[in-house]
Computed example of a mutant assay.
Amino acid sequence: MNKPLDYIFPNPPADLDPTRLDPAAVPEHVAVIMDGNGRWAKERGKNRLFGHKAGIDAVREIIRCASDVGVRYLTIYSFSSENWKRPQEEVIGLMNLFATTMLAEVDGLHEEHVRVMTIGRTDELPKKTRDAFAKAWEKTKDNDGMTLVVAVNYGGRVEMLDAMRSLMDEAHAAVRAGRAPEELTEESFARHLYTADIPDPDLLIRTSGEMRVSNFLLWQIAYSEFVCTDVLWPDFDRYELLRALLEFQGRDRRFGAVK
């Protein structure tokens, strides 16, 4: 973090003291299940796509704030492999929103030294959306700031199936070449996940009061700290992120050990 806390959090609520945040103990990787866009829109008499568009503003603010406080990896759950079951109008609208937003934001992200990457079966996305994410990766891949990981057409179970298929292909290739297959370990399996080069999340945030993981990073969140909030995603701002970070810093992480 190279910006002072009073710059990052200029107008905190009376019950929130940004100086309590320890810059040395900010989680390296924060993952977010962004939930509540539809309910936020319904409360205002609007359709779900209106809520998704409002949610983009929250995404923009959280990216900037997370980067400013020193988070190295921010993973956002944008579209699950099950979300194709939603009404076609909403799905098409989301895919167009992803494409237009990514193209509109990539220059600004690049200026902030943010690296943009995706996880999931992106080859199944519409070409316009796929190309937008590819352009963002190409432009930002050499950046050395925070890595923004967009989980799109992502499912934790599918990821593990894909990893196992990759492992099996590698083992068959080794046998055909007269070599012994690599031993199956947690480490060798993890190297075949979409997140092979990304540390596991330290903190998982879920908005809108729901208490489930929704097939998100099932392998990677084994020892993540969870923070769930009733705040709907479009209302999740830098101060809500600060609350989550402070709660995280108050946890005693034992990773199965006794202290």
Rank of each mutant, 00 (worst) to 15 (best):
L109T: 10
R176K: 11
P126R: 14
D237N: 15
R212Y: 02
T147Q: 13
G108L: 11
P181R: 11
A151C: 13
G178T: 00
A132I: 11
K139R: 15
Y194K: 04
I221N: 01
D200S: 06
M211D: 06
V114T: 12
V158Q: 12
N215I: 04
K139S: 00
E124N: 08
Q220V: 01
D162A: 13
L103T: 11
H110C: 07
D169F: 05
W137V: 15
W233M: 10
A222R: 01
L204P: 04
D230C: 07
S224M: 08
R165I: 11
D144S: 12
T195N: 05
D200L: 00
V175K: 14
D144Q: 09
W219H: 02
L232F: 08
R212C: 15
K135H: 05
T207K: 07
V175S: 02
D230T: 15
L125M: 11
W137P: 04
Y154S: 10
M117Y: 03
H192N: 14
L109K: 11
T229L: 13
L232C: 03
W137H: 15
D107V: 07
E105V: 00
H110G: 01
E105H: 02
T118N: 14
F236D: 13
S214E: 02
A104I: 06
W219S: 00
T185H: 12
A104G: 10
R115V: 00
K128D: 15
I198W: 04
C228Q: 12
E187K: 13
R206K: 13
A180R: 11
G209T: 03
A132W: 08
E183R: 14
I205R: 14
D142C: 08
E124G: 03
L203S: 05
E159Y: 12
Y223A: 01
L148T: 04
T118C: 13
A136L: 05
G108K: 06
P234F: 01
T195G: 03
H172V: 06
A171N: 13
V227R: 08
M160A: 08
N143V: 09
